[in-house]
Computed example of a mutant assay.
Amino acid sequence: MHIKRYIDKVPGGMMLVPLFIGALVNTIAPNAGTYFGSFTNGIMHGIVPILSVWFFCIGSSISFKSTGMVLRKSGVLVVTKIAVAWIVAIFATQLLPEGGITTGLFAGFSVLTLVAAMDMTNGGLYASLMDQYGTKEDAGAFVLMSVESGPLMTMMILGTTGMASFHLQAFIGTIIPFAAGLILGNLDKDLKEFFSKGVALLIPFFGFSLGCGINIGVLADTGIAGIILSLFVIVITGIPLIIADIYLGKGNGTAGIAASSTAGAAVATPILIAQMAPQFKEIAPLASALVAASTLLTSILVPIATAKYSKWVSNRTNKFQQKIANHV
């Protein structure tokens, strides 16, 4: 059987397929983890320790020895993505109820949902698109995108907009595993190679654990709202990212549109934030479902948008060069 081959055909499949399976298990047998206990309960509801190890592995995969061009490229994209999410959060706090919208077409929409969907980029998707449509420097910008992973940036945005307050130790606690991996990975290249393998390995495990906290009906209810959120993410983050890539990153904008996706890790953020900010507990399952929908749909739509934008830029450049050639 070629199970992985079929899973890989689904955008973000190694996270989304286990998530769906977990949600199915939780819907059919919501008390299965408690009933079996021990390791079974741990793998079904141990999302925090699983993600802690995953953040450590991500840190170990990042190198301090990146070139200046790569750091500038990645820095521009990361800062722009976070800044846009922060601005959206400021406006959303004025328009949306504190606990989010819990009924109707936009059920699940909240400041938490919007920030979680916007402030992280699907780094693997970005890197693959840049291998095809960008330069080596563009593809290398993936190195800093891992810094966005996890709830830290979301916590900072929610904290600065007044939507939630977090104790200092909570912020530090989210950084320690990542920082430990970053330090060890840069001190020893063998440890870097060893631990960085865990980044891909742990994705289906935290996807399944996350799904075990979601009812399948919640995933089904995202429907149109998930599509709206996906388009919102691509348009609202994509335009500033294109502009930033052109004027600050010295690119042609292709890297910007390629970065306008929702990361798979973002699906876990609402649940993690709700553990530290109780006002989000009611909206967290719906928010996670919406972010999961955005992860899937942006994984499909962003490559299409990137290809069309790259072709448009190429045609425009060729026409400009042809005009110059005709005048010479």
Rank of each mutant, 00 (worst) to 15 (best):
T34P: 00
Y35A: 15
F36L: 15
F36S: 08
F36H: 09
G37N: 10
G37S: 13
G37V: 12
S38C: 02
F39E: 03
T40S: 14
T40W: 15
M44G: 02
H45F: 11
G46S: 10
I47S: 11
I47Y: 08
P49K: 13
L51N: 04
L51V: 11
S52G: 12
V53Y: 04
V53S: 03
W54N: 02
W54Y: 14
F56C: 05
C57V: 01
C57T: 09
I58Q: 03
I58G: 01
G59K: 03
S60F: 09
S60N: 01
S60C: 14
S60K: 01
S60H: 02
S61C: 04
S61E: 07
S61V: 08
I62E: 05
I62C: 02
S63M: 08
S63V: 05
F64E: 01
F64M: 10
F64C: 05
K65I: 04
K65T: 11
S66V: 14
S66N: 12
T67P: 00
T67Q: 09
G68S: 13
M69P: 00
V70K: 03
V70C: 08
V70Q: 06
R72G: 10
V76E: 06
V76Y: 09
V76L: 13
V76N: 07
L77P: 00
V78E: 07
V79T: 15
T80W: 12
T80C: 11
T80Q: 04
K81D: 15
I82E: 01
I82D: 06
V84T: 11
A85H: 06
I87A: 13
I87W: 06
V88E: 00
V88C: 05
V88F: 09
A89D: 01
F91S: 06
F91P: 00
F91A: 13
A92W: 07
A92Y: 07
T93F: 09
T93D: 10
Q94Y: 13
L95M: 11
L96A: 07
E98A: 14
E98Y: 03
G99S: 05
G99Y: 03
G99M: 07
G100F: 10
G100E: 04
G100Y: 06
I101P: 00
I101T: 09
T102G: 10
T102R: 03
T102K: 05
T102F: 01
T103E: 13
G104A: 11
L105C: 05
L105H: 06
F106Q: 00
A107G: 03
G108A: 09
F109W: 13
F109M: 04
